[in-house]
Design a protein around this nucleic acid. Sequence first.
DNA 1: TCAATAGTTCCGAAACTACGAACTATCGAC
DNA 2: GTCGATAGTTCGTAGTTTCGGAACTATTGA
Lengths: 127, 127
Amino acid sequence: MKPLFHPSIEDVTVEGILHALSDPVRASIFLDIAGTTSSLTCSNFPSAREQNVPKSTLSQHFKVLRDAGLIRGERHGVEMKNVSRCAEIEKRFPGLIPSIIRAKTIQKQGKSHGGAGAKTKSASTRR
Amino acid sequence: MKPLFHPSIEDVTVEGILHALSDPVRASIFLDIAGTTSSLTCSNFPSAREQNVPKSTLSQHFKVLRDAGLIRGERHGVEMKNVSRCAEIEKRFPGLIPSIIRAKTIQKQGKSHGGAGAKTKSASTRR
DNA sequence: TCAATAGTTCCGAAACTACGAACTATCGAC
DNA sequence: GTCGATAGTTCGTAGTTTCGGAACTATTGA
């Protein structure tokens, strides 16, 4: 079957990475993947589940993450194992991913204390 | 006149920053601003000039950068001085901006040696 | 007051995104 | 092998965002 495109690490761009992670759903998916050593299937994402993201949208998000070079998807039987490509990216763009993850963590922490949340344009309620 | 909106630093989001910098034109504009101590007017951007970006589009890009909290625009007479808010952001999200700038620099350096350029979706030729 | 300059706003066209429905691929049961 | 179930992908449509030319606004200098 069609073998699922992944860019070589030299073709990975900063723009692509930033674009992929500028979406809150994709960002939380990526954090899940990057934060575990075991590989996750496309449907096993608590963060995405909570938000009731439909299957087709989820599939698109995974495609964007793959195209950006952030994750690698491998078919294992009927389901797909997703693993991060952090190590490769770290070699090409040292410190980039860790600092983004750190920033996201800081933002999440400060979210509880009465924060009205900034205007992320399309982040909150869309459609 | 209308005093030009700027978010307070607590309302600045990682998503907003990443989205703003995921566009190559905006990114190069921001690099110009962040890389100099003197403030720049909206029209004095070699990077934008070269690419023939029309005035209205440029204005939109500056608005996105302002809304993301990356720059501050102040009217001085008939023109606008743009200065970066790197120091503020550095306090809120330590290391984020520097690592992005570093990554962009790495990417620019490696661009010459026969690189076909990755597929940044909308990066190159749009419309 | 008038012309010139620097940015913004308006708006139609093109590009992008979300998501339901239909489709494809793989596994297990029979 | 065929059937059904499951996991993802693709297609099509509707809504959103972005681009960029034309018109508009604000400020300075003549």
